[in-house]
Computed example of a mutant assay.
Amino acid sequence: MNSKETEDKISLRELVDSISILADKKDVHAQVQLFSENATSETYVNGKPFLKLKGRIEMEKGFAKFLKNVEIVYHFNGQQQVTIQGNSATGTCYCLITMIGTEDGKKIQTTIGAVYQDTYIRENNRWLINERIGNFEWQEKHKINP
Rank of each mutant, 00 (worst) to 15 (best):
S3K: 15
K4I: 06
T6H: 05
E7M: 14
R13H: 09
E14D: 14
V16I: 12
D17A: 12
S18L: 02
S18Q: 11
I19S: 05
S20C: 11
D24N: 13
D24H: 07
D24M: 10
D27N: 13
D27L: 01
D27I: 00
D27W: 07
D27R: 05
A30Q: 13
Q31G: 02
V32C: 08
L34F: 06
S36Y: 10
N38K: 14
T40D: 04
E42V: 03
T43W: 13
T43L: 12
N46Q: 10
K48G: 07
P49N: 09
P49A: 09
F50L: 11
L53V: 08
K54D: 00
R56W: 04
E58M: 04
M59R: 05
K65A: 08
K65T: 01
K68D: 15
K68C: 07
K68F: 03
N69M: 07
N69Q: 12
N69P: 03
V70I: 15
V73R: 11
Y74L: 07
H75F: 06
Q79G: 14
Q79C: 12
Q80M: 14
Q80I: 11
V82T: 14
T83V: 15
I84S: 02
N87I: 00
S88Q: 15
S88V: 14
A89F: 10
T90E: 07
G91D: 02
C93M: 14
C95P: 03
I97E: 01
M99T: 08
I100P: 06
G101N: 08
E103M: 08
E103K: 13
D104C: 04
D104L: 09
D104W: 09
G105E: 07
K106Q: 15
Q109E: 15
G113I: 01
A114T: 05
V115I: 13
Y116K: 05
Y116M: 05
Y116D: 01
Y116N: 02
Q117F: 04
D118T: 04
D118Q: 06
T119F: 11
Y120I: 00
I121W: 00
I121L: 13
R122V: 04
E123Y: 08
R126M: 01
L128S: 10
I129K: 06
R132N: 01
R132V: 00
I133G: 03
G134S: 10
N145Q: 13
